Simulated scan of single mutants.
Amino acid sequence: MKLSAELRAFEARIGHRFARPELLVRALTHGSVSSTTRADNQRLEFLGDRVLGLVMAEALLLDDKKATEGQLAPRFNALVRKEACAEVAREVDLGSVLKLGRSEMLSGGRRKQALLGDAMEAVIAAVYRDGGFEPAREMILRLWGRRIQSVEEDARDPKTALQEWAQARRLAPPKYVELGRSGPDHAPVFTIAARLDNGEEAEATAGSKRQAEQAAAKALLNRLESA
């Protein structure tokens, strides 16, 4: 298979030249455009998530040889979560080469955090299957490099941080309540409230329940910590 000039340029951005170009094509194929003869990237995404996790765990151990498991865990979560993968995807302009169905393209799929994060994990798996662990490891460390050095001990996702805030004050875990849903089926918008037993709550709206929950938790945590 011969890659287009656009995909060759993407190879240069991630720093890996594929011996099996079909792996890259599959990694960039979203389910909205797959068919019986055109596989999507979901299985590669599953594998890439595990490869990324192993590389990040090893990198964090080497970066701070005195850190405890309790210190390493939130750093690890910050580096492998979907938001971090999507940030890296944006830096290498993955969205411009993502293969999407018409409905996803019209709803801004090339900019969606979930799609970009999933595709970045799939690309990691494609590199792993194409060249083995070392090329995948080298690419991940190169693309995530500055994040590994700068990640903070308390870099945990907002839902986890809010739950820990509540537990420290002997409150029940936060509850997340869907207040509303709008937009078409292919591009829904959710409004979620994060609530605590003490009556505190905050709302947020996003293109997925997970993102809305994270945003609501962050808004509530910011309010509580600034009070």
Results as ranks from 00 to 15, higher is better:
150 S>F: 07
142 R>K: 14
144 W>M: 02
99 K>W: 11
95 G>W: 01
223 R>H: 14
58 E>L: 10
57 A>I: 02
77 N>I: 02
122 A>S: 05
51 V>K: 03
165 W>K: 14
160 T>V: 03
82 K>F: 03
65 K>G: 09
137 R>P: 09
199 G>E: 04
103 S>W: 14
199 G>N: 08
64 D>K: 07
113 Q>A: 08
20 R>E: 12
190 F>R: 10
71 Q>V: 14
101 G>I: 12
82 K>P: 03
160 T>C: 02
53 G>K: 01
154 D>H: 03
116 L>N: 00
177 V>I: 13
28 L>D: 02
14 I>K: 00
124 I>A: 03
226 S>I: 11
207 G>M: 02
7 L>S: 04
220 L>F: 04
130 D>I: 09
27 A>W: 12
4 S>C: 14
219 A>V: 09
17 R>D: 11
30 H>L: 01
212 A>V: 14
155 A>D: 09
173 P>S: 08
50 R>C: 06
203 E>L: 10
59 A>G: 08
176 Y>N: 04
21 P>Y: 09
211 Q>D: 15
32 S>L: 10
166 A>Q: 02
121 E>Y: 14
125 A>T: 05
97 V>S: 05
218 K>R: 11
26 R>F: 03
188 P>N: 13
222 N>W: 04
182 S>G: 06
25 V>N: 08
16 H>Q: 07
160 T>G: 03
212 A>I: 13
72 L>P: 01
83 E>N: 02
128 Y>C: 07
50 R>K: 12
182 S>A: 10
147 R>N: 07
16 H>Y: 13
119 A>K: 05
6 E>A: 14
202 A>K: 15
129 R>D: 04
6 E>L: 15
117 G>T: 05
34 S>R: 15
187 A>M: 11
111 R>D: 07
10 F>T: 10
149 Q>W: 11
59 A>T: 01
60 L>G: 04
90 R>T: 00
70 G>P: 02
128 Y>I: 04
109 G>E: 02
150 S>D: 15
145 G>R: 15
106 L>W: 10
113 Q>S: 13
152 E>F: 11
226 S>C: 10
197 D>V: 01
77 N>T: 06
173 P>L: 03
167 Q>P: 06
214 Q>H: 15
32 S>T: 09
